[in-house]
Structures are given as structure tokens and as C-alpha cells.
Amino acid sequence: MSTTNPQSDTQPDEGPRRSRWSRRPAEGSPAAAARARRRSKQRRRLANVAALMTGLVLTGALYSTLAPGAQAADEGSESSAEAAGRELYERSCISCHGENLEGVPNRGPSLIGVGEAAVYFQVHTGRMPLVRQEAQAPDKPAIFSDEEIDQLMAYVQANGGGPVLPSGDLRDGDLAAGGELFRLNCAQCHNFVGEGGALSSGKYAPSLEDANDLEIYAAMLSGPENMPIFGDNQLTPEEKRSIINYIQTITDMPDPGGAGIGRIGPVSEGLVIWVVGIAALLFGIFWMGSKA
């Protein structure tokens, strides 16, 4: 109701508002009517601006009175896990994500609303804490223990909420359908078999080979780095479980044709034919022929 458009004369709520703001009744003569219209238009504009300003100020005032109160209430009822998480956060994360998870420009994004899924993915794969600022955070051995990760998750979840981790069997989905969804949604960056691939300017889609079920699920929920978020209305939880089932089945599957040579297709095959095939045959013809 506060989004009044000054250009528009045909707002459905115009009537009642005019009656409220412009107390001048409409007069009979056409000239007077026109003048009145112009006048009332101007007034209306002024009135709209004023209403907008009032609304904004009110919202701001309301927020400034309520928000600290909410936080104070939070602090009062903070669980021990959250407190421990805050402790960890203030030791390892605060320099880039800010005192109140609000982020620091050019250093780290805000963590308000990212939820425990994002924390789990980033910390459990070792991406966070970051070693240095670069194109993309590489995965490395996790620095925090599972218990500490739980505490961090609790702290971030308590401050802003966001997607939460699923429970149950994450491979509980249709294998073939998962493959089709994987090729449709994931293969562009992660490759046919989840080998990963290069993106622009040093960024990349990582290999899914070592990812566990929960990490993959959390990545889909939280969209880390360059990855889009696949919310539950893009990919339903069942579809996510199907995709995880497909990825893990493919990853665990032995290669029926012999050595997998990276499963990336023609590049490694071309390397093998030159380095192994042609080299072996050159050896063969050195053996058979004479040298110069």
C-alpha cells in the first residue's frame, strides 16, 4: 500500500485515500474541476512521498527498537553448543565474516541466513577457514572436528536461520532418474561423471569423487562458490537423493573396460595412444629395423 506510483491516476485505493488526505470536495465548473484535479494531483504526489517517508522512518524505528531486543533475547537463551560455536567463530571466522556474521566487504560474505547446510559444506570439506583469498576456496582436510562443526552450525543457524541438513538415507532415490537429472543440472560444470571441470578465471567445479552424501546435499541446498542453489522447489528432496544415489553409484562403480584413465574421455585417451601406443610401437620398430 505504500508503493504508490505518482504517475498512476487509477489506483484502486485512490478514492478512499483522496477522501482522507484531500479534504476539498469536487466542484461543479469544468475549469474549477480541472484546477482542482491539477491541485489534487500535486497534493497527492506530495502526500505519497510523505507517506513513503513516514513508512520508512517507522519501519526503521521499529527495527531499531525490536532488533537489539531480539538479539538480547537470543543471547539470553543461547545453548551451550551455540556458545561454543560462537567461541569458534570468533577465533577462526570473524576476520572475514564480521562480528555479527554480517560479512566484510571484499573479504567474506554475510552468513546471515545461509543456514547450517552451508556451514557443514564449507567447513566439513575444509574449504573454510580459507588459507588465502583466491579465485576459489580449494577443499582440504577439515580443520574442525565433527563436534566443532556441529557447534558452528548451531551458532550460524541460530543467527539468521537458513537451509538445514537433511536426515535419513540420502541415497534413497531412483538411480536412472538421478542420472538424467545429473546430466541435466550438474554435468555442465561437474562433467558427465563428476570429474569436475574448469570455469572462468581460475574458478572450477570440483570433482565429486571424494564428496560424501551429506556434502553433496548441502552443496545443492546452499550453492557454494559459483554453484547455483538448487532449492527444494527446483529439485525436490527426492530428486536430490536420486542425484546423490547416481553420483555415488557411478563413483563406486569399477571400470569394466580396464584402467579408467581419469574417465574424462578423449583427452586422456589421446595422451595414452601417443605415450603408450605409439611409444610401444616405436620400440617395436626400433627392434625390427636398423638405425641410421
Partner: peptide, 13 residues
């Protein structure tokens, strides 16, 4: 499927 494509799609050498 024309709607799908994978990264690292290369031809033979």
C-alpha cells in the same frame, strides 16, 4: 539429449 551437455566434451585427438 540436446538439452544436456557436459564440461570437458572433447573430440578424439
Amino acid at each position: 539429449n540436446p538439452a544436456q551437455v557436459s564440461s570437458a566434451s572433447q573430440p578424439d585427438w
